[in-house]
């Protein structure tokens, strides 16, 4: 076991390899590892944020759905109310129309009755004059007895 120049040679070799590793191996490896660490960190952060966003969106969607349901219920309610109102109005209108028609018919009927009475009255006057002529066999001066006849007719 001799101590010789190898000692110095090995020292120099050692320092040379250390230098190489220090300059060419360590920095790129550390750089890449740091970069990956950063990437993973941001990735995790983003995932967390996305989860939060999702939750938020879900809550928002639920809220909106609820609101929409409420609105729909309101609209249906309103429509029902309006339909009832329309039906009521229609009923009201129909009743009014019926009354009006009834009144008109009644008036016409009265008119007809009056006219028939008038006719009847005039016919009665004629008939009574003719009857009297026949009874008296005389020509009654119609003009002279008009007052009488009219009185008679009016009493009918």
């Amino acid at each position: 076991m001799n101590i010789n120049l190898t000692l110095i040679g090995q020292s120099i070799t050692f320092l040379a390899f250390v230098w190489f590793c220090w300059k060419f191996v360590w920095p790129p490896l550390m750089g890449v590892m740091k970069e990956r660490e950063q990437k993973i960190a941001t990735g995790l952060e983003e995932a967390e944020r996305a989860g939060k966003d999702l939750e938020l969106a879900q809550r928002k969607a639920a809220d909106q759905l609820k609101e929409a349901k409420e609105q729909a219920a309101e609209i249906i309610d309103g429509a029902n109310k309006r339909a009832n109102q329309i039906v009521d109005e229609a009923k009201q209108a129909a009743l009014a129309e019926g009354d009006r028609l009834k009144a008109a018919a009644k008036a016409e009927i009265e008119q007809e009755v009056n006219r028939a009475k008038e006719q009847l009255r005039s016919r009665v006057a004629e008939l009574s004059v003719a009857g009297a002529e026949k009874i008296l066999s005389i020509n009654i001066d119609a003009k002279a007895h008009d007052d009488l006849i009219d009185k008679l007719a009016a009493e009918l």
Binding site: N4, L5, T6, T13, A16, F17, F20, L29
Partner: peptide
């Protein structure tokens, strides 16, 4: 005496050191 070099020792350590450098530099 002192003025001698162990060729095998230095040779193998240099070869193995270069293997280390090669592997790790390649990896890096």
């Amino acid at each position: 005496g002192f003025w001698a070099i162990h060729v095998d020792t230095l040779g193998w350590s240099i070869v193995l050191g270069m293997l280390f450098c090669f592997l790790f530099a390649r990896g890096a």
